[in-house]
Simulated assay, not measured.
Amino acid sequence: MNRNVKYSDGTMVGSSGTGTILDGVPGQNASYTGYHWTKAVCETCGTVNSNMSINDYGFGKNVYWLYDCDSKFMQELPEQKNYDYVDSTYHKVTTTGGEYCAFCYGTNHTKSSVLERHDMEKEILSQPANGRFAIVEKCKDCDYAKYEYVGAKSVVASYYGVVDGAPHTISVTDLSDVGVRTEIRYGNSADSCTMTSAPNYTDKGQYDVYYQITYTYQGVEMTENGVANVWLHDETTKDDGKCSCGCSDPNCGCEDKNCGGNCCTDKGCGEKHHFTLLDSVKAGCKTLGYDHYLCTACGKIEKRDYVDSLGHAWQSVKIREATCEADGKQLELWTASRDVRKKDS
């Protein structure tokens, strides 16, 4: 036997000892050596290791012999790559592989690590509930991602006013960031928004104005639908709150400035008016609400059931999150009063 071959415990082959090829720990002191232990038996005569020369030590002996691992036994280990985030520019790529002998299962592992730049891909997501587009960039290999936000928001304000002979309509304030294209269409119902300008109104009444806003950013679209109101009231009171018909009653609801107080003249009802609800005026941010009552017997009109003004009810809409590199943006709005405030954070 080849006297230059040792067991893993250092014992020479052929000498006394208890060496074993199973002593090694893979990855520590056991790896692919290029050899395997084997013995051969003749199928006809039963001679052990009869494939060796008759003068060799192992011929005719029931022992394992150390042979070179034939190249046909060698197989490549599947190469595996792991990606670990390092920073906003790089990730670490660790590659493991090697080869092993399919006969003796001896292995030779390889491992290497290098830094690579992130391989980023961009996606633009519409977020209509937040009034913005989200620009998401993710690395194709590791779990690194970064986010940016582009505001896409228009404030549509209803109009509350009095009949003054001039046309009135809703107002739209576009607060979208640069790069966002905004298109708005109007209609008299939710499914008929085809007009490019909002309808105007001059007569007393409450009008619904439906709208559809389409925001486009780098080819990605999102749509916002809604309805606003135009309320026109025929208020003929003076600055001091007294009726302009001449009766000097602040609760008079007469809308005829030329009646000369005739609406307030007792026509026989006395204190027994037969009032019925004529219409209601809703409270605004700064104005009182009230009901109009009409006496069906004499025609007297009164304002009743006053409701306090609402005050401004601000709603916060976060358009863009603040990051280390860019300010955030937040809108505070009350659509009924046309008031809009922007806050940077």
Rank of each mutant, 00 (worst) to 15 (best):
Asp87Glu: 12
Asp339Glu: 08
Ala157Arg: 09
Arg341Asp: 06
Ser337Val: 05
Val5Gly: 03
Val163Glu: 15
Tyr160Thr: 05
Gly299Trp: 01
Asp119Lys: 06
Trp334Thr: 15
Arg117Cys: 12
Thr194Gln: 04
Ser197Gln: 15
Asn200Lys: 04
Gly24Arg: 03
Gly270Asp: 08
Tyr105Asp: 09
Ser154Gly: 15
Ser176Gly: 09
Thr276Asp: 06
Lys153Ile: 11
Gly253Asp: 03
Gly161Trp: 11
Gly270Glu: 08
Ser50Leu: 00
Thr110Arg: 02
Arg181Ala: 15
Thr276Ser: 12
Ser197Asn: 12
Tyr144Met: 01
His36Ser: 07
Tyr7Thr: 13
Ala336Leu: 13
Trp37Ile: 08
Ala145Lys: 15
Thr18Gly: 12
Asn108Arg: 00
Ala166Lys: 14
Met222Trp: 00
Val86Cys: 13
Thr202Gly: 03
Val86Phe: 15
Ala190Tyr: 05
Trp314Leu: 13
Lys286Val: 09
Ser337Arg: 05
Gln127Ser: 12
Met195Thr: 07
Asp305Ile: 00
Glu183Lys: 09
Gly311Ala: 09
Gln127His: 13
Met12Arg: 10
Gly299Leu: 00
Leu125Phe: 09
Thr216Glu: 13
Phe59Asp: 12
Arg117Trp: 09
Ala190Ser: 14
Thr20Lys: 07
Ser309Met: 12
Ser189Trp: 13
Ser192Ile: 09
